[in-house]
Simulated assay, not measured.
Amino acid sequence: MEIISSFLILLILFVVLIIKLGVKIVSQADIYIIERLGRFHRVLDGGFHIIIPFFDSVRAKLSVREGLVDISRQQVITKDNVNIMVDGIVFLKVFDGRMAVYNVEDYKKAISNLAMTTLRSAIGEMSLDSTLSSRDQLNAKLQMALGDAANNWGVKIMRVEISEISVPHDIEEAMNMQMKAEREKRAIELNAQANKEALIRNAEALKQEQVLQAEAIERMADARKYEQIALAQGQKAAMEAINEAALSSHAGLEFLLANERVKAFGELAKNTSNDKILVPYETAELIGSLSVFKEFLSPKKAKNKESAEQGEI
Rank of each mutant, 00 (worst) to 15 (best):
G124C: 09
Q28V: 10
E66T: 06
E66Q: 09
L278Q: 05
K93W: 00
A232N: 08
V69Y: 02
L146T: 02
L13I: 10
D170W: 00
R186D: 07
Q28S: 09
K185T: 10
E312P: 01
A29S: 14
K301Q: 06
N243H: 06
V104A: 03
T117Y: 01
E267Q: 09
Y281L: 12
A284R: 13
H169R: 12
F296C: 01
I3L: 12
H169N: 13
K93C: 01
G154N: 10
L256D: 14
K180C: 01
A140G: 05
D106E: 02
L44Q: 01
L256Y: 13
A192K: 10
S127C: 11
A237D: 11
N271G: 03
Q137A: 11
N103K: 14
V90A: 07
I200L: 14
L206F: 03
F40Q: 05
K301L: 14
V90W: 06
S291Q: 04
V155N: 06
V160S: 00
S130A: 15
M99G: 00
I31V: 09
N176R: 15
R261E: 13
M126D: 10
V167A: 10
G154H: 04
L132R: 01
A149Y: 04
I77M: 10
G266I: 01
L13A: 15
N103L: 04
G154Q: 08
R73L: 05
K24P: 02
Q143M: 07
M158Q: 08
I71G: 11
I31T: 08
L114T: 04
L146V: 08
I313S: 12
L119F: 04
V211Q: 12
K300S: 12
M116I: 03
R183G: 01
R39E: 12
E209P: 00
D148P: 02
D170Y: 00
A251V: 04
L253M: 14
K301I: 15
L114P: 01
